[in-house]
């Protein structure tokens, strides 16, 4: 990224021959002009208006559909639709797998249970994780191969073992409070394990923390103001900041098409809290120094953001001692 953002200097009287000239050619700009004139400009309202751009262009007419969907969401129709679909799945399932009142399926996937009495045999079926139980069920011929109540689970962890075919397969080991052990395999064992833990906050094996954390979005995400610099002065703009697990800090306004701020871990040099006027009720803002300049952010939980980013710079190459401005 170059920091030389100035146009090339010209000593001669020639007027910026290198500057791209904007075009006003109606052939090229007509669609843009139409769009702007139909959607922008002063909208008078009050009761003295007859009409605001009610033009029979198909683009405009199609937009009415969007308004319709918006209304649907507003009135929760989508949710109702979603609930109905879920209820239907629930009903069709309950025909072969009886459920308790208020019990709901959280996840289902192809799985097997290891029967380990007089002979070791993997019996295939489907694993159902419900709000109450973990079940391995075979549909045809119908048989519940294994099940437990979630509150009977003492621990759940994953391990790998070579399968008959010689490949390493991931298995789940479920230990119950009564000391019995069940072994399962599942199509997406990782996900099943994560969900079991989420559902019951089961204390896992050694790497419980990291495995559960793997699956959950960014490290931190929240409302944030970003100070954007213009030709004259700067403006605080509202949006969302995200710190990903990989340590990338982004900020995006809901009105923009892409994130305006994107700081890779390697670009992050230092963070400071400093006094600076901003739209929040707090006096301090976060100043983030990067390899290509600095940016200012303001918002709730600033200390937590500062802490996280500060730790990142510490674990990186630079150590910052000047952050204690509080």
């Amino acid at each position: 990224m170059s920091e030389n953002h100035l146009p090339p200097a010209h000593g001669s009287a020639v007027e910026q021959p290198s500057a791209l000239q904007p075009t006003r050619d109606p052939g090229a700009t007509l669609p843009d002009l139409l769009e702007v004139l139909l959607n922008k400009g002063v909208h008078l309202n009050l009761d003295l208006i007859i009409s605001v751009a009610d033009v029979p262009l198909i683009g405009v007419n199609l937009r009415a559909t969007i308004a319709g969907i918006e209304t649907m969401i507003e009135y929760g129709m989508m949710r109702q639709w979603d609930d109905q679909t879920r209820a239907w799945v629930q009903r069709s399932l309950s025909r072969h797998l009886p459920m308790a009142d208020g019990e709901e399926v959280v996840a289902a996937m192809a799985a097997s249970h290891l029967r380990d009495d007089f002979q070791r045999i993997w019996r295939p079926g489907r694993a159902y994780l419900t709000t109450h139980r973990l079940i391995v069920h075979r549909r045809d011929p119908a048989e519940t191969l294994w099940q437990t109540r979630l509150d009977s689970i003492a621990s759940a962890e994953s391990y790998t073992e070579p399968s008959v075919g010689g490949e390493d397969r991931m298995r789940l080991k479920i230990v119950l409070h009564d000391g019995s052990v069940a072994r399962l395999s599942a199509l997406d064992a990782d996900r099943l394990l994560t969900l079991i833990r989420q559902q019951r906050q089961v204390p896992g094996g050694a790497q419980a923390e990291s495995a559960a954390a793997e699956d959950q979005g960014p490290r931190m995400r929240g409302t944030m103001w970003y100070l954007e610099t213009f030709a004259q002065g700067a403006t605080w703009r509202g949006g969302k900041a995200t710190l990903t697990r990989e340590g990338m800090l982004t900020w995006k306004s809901p009105l923009d098409n892409r994130a305006s701020l994107r700081i890779e871990p390697a670009q992050l040099k230092a963070v400071h809290l400093e006094k600076h006027s901003n739209p929040t009720s707090q006096a301090q803002v976060l100043r983030v120094e990067t390899t290509s300049g600095e940016v200012r952010l303001a918002g709730p939980d600033l200390h937590k953001w500062h802490q996280l980013l500060h730790d990142d710079t510490e674990s990186g190459q630079e150590v910052d001692h000047g952050a204690g401005s509080q």
Binding site: H43, L44, N45, T235, W236, S253
Partner: peptide
């Protein structure tokens, strides 16, 4: 233009801006 004269219209969304400084 950024002006929404009168009350309660559903026109173009406004920028989430506050003070300039």
């Amino acid at each position: 233009v950024d002006i929404d004269a009168g009350a309660g219209s559903a026109s173009t969304p406004q920028e989430g801006k506050s003070s300039a400084e």
